[in-house]
Computed example of a mutant assay.
Amino acid sequence: MKEVQLHAKCQEEVIVDEAKLACNVGSGIVSVYATPMMIAAMEHAAVQCLQPFLEEGETSVGVLMHTTHDAATPAGMKVRISAEIIAVDRKKVTFSIIAQDEKDIIGKASHERFVVMKEKFEAKAQAKLC
């Protein structure tokens, strides 16, 4: 892993479409942006933020996500996810993440990822099948 730059940031945008609604992903019966879809977008933004600091063969895996989902977002709205690296402890990288739609901050998260060697990590997981 290269030296990780504190306060490095990444922003992504998603459009809330029918496939991202709580009533369509099994996380509720309402027609609003589903919490699991927001969390997935938050995690994806963190992955992208860390990517420039990884060496060949490395990847990162999420180990903790502490999230609030504070406001509902209807289909058709744009959501911006902003991830920032706020701490590094050897191979553990911590992020502060904010999600906001066109009107409100809709969610916040503290997220931790560990840098691992992809092949070794996957081999260990596959060994569980034996």
Rank of each mutant, 00 (worst) to 15 (best):
F95N: 00
I106Q: 09
K20W: 03
K124Y: 14
E43F: 02
K91H: 02
M42T: 02
V16N: 09
D70K: 13
E12D: 06
G26D: 11
E102F: 07
H44D: 09
M65F: 05
L6Q: 06
K78I: 05
V32H: 14
A123F: 01
M65L: 09
C10P: 08
A83N: 09
K128Y: 07
I81Q: 00
G57L: 04
E122V: 15
G28P: 09
C23F: 06
A34T: 14
A125N: 05
S96R: 12
P52T: 02
K118F: 04
A72C: 08
K78Y: 02
V16D: 10
H69S: 08
E3S: 05
A19F: 08
E84D: 01
D17G: 13
T73F: 10
Q5F: 08
Q5H: 07
A40H: 10
F53Q: 02
M77T: 05
N24M: 11
T67R: 04
P74N: 09
V116E: 00
Q11P: 05
E122I: 15
A125E: 03
K103M: 13
Q126A: 11
E12L: 08
A87D: 15
V4W: 01
K92T: 02
E84T: 05
D104M: 14
I98S: 10
M65R: 00
V47L: 05
A83I: 07
I106F: 10
P74M: 08
E84R: 05
K9I: 09
V79R: 09
E112M: 13
V93S: 03
I106Y: 11
P36K: 01
P74I: 11
H111D: 06
P74V: 12
K2Q: 07
L129Q: 14
K78P: 00
V88P: 04
G57M: 08
M37G: 00
A40G: 12
D104A: 14
R80C: 13
A123G: 00
S96E: 07
H66E: 15
A87Q: 15
E12G: 13
G28T: 08
I15F: 06
A99Y: 07
S110K: 13
K118M: 03
K124V: 12
L64R: 14
F53V: 03
F53Y: 01
D104H: 15
M42V: 09
V93P: 02
A109V: 06
Q100E: 15
A127Q: 15
G26H: 11
K103H: 14
M65P: 02
G57H: 04
V4S: 00
A127L: 10
K128P: 00
K118C: 03
V88T: 03
K118D: 00
M77L: 12
T94H: 11
Q11I: 07
K78S: 06
V115E: 02
A83C: 13
A45S: 11
G62Y: 03
I39L: 12
V30M: 11
M65G: 01
E13G: 02
G107V: 06
F95T: 02
D70C: 05
L129W: 10
H44T: 05
T35M: 05
P36S: 03
A125Y: 01
A83M: 10
F53P: 03
K124L: 15
Q11S: 08
Q100N: 13
F121W: 12
I98F: 07
K92D: 01
A72P: 05
K124E: 13
K2D: 01
K108G: 13
L54I: 06
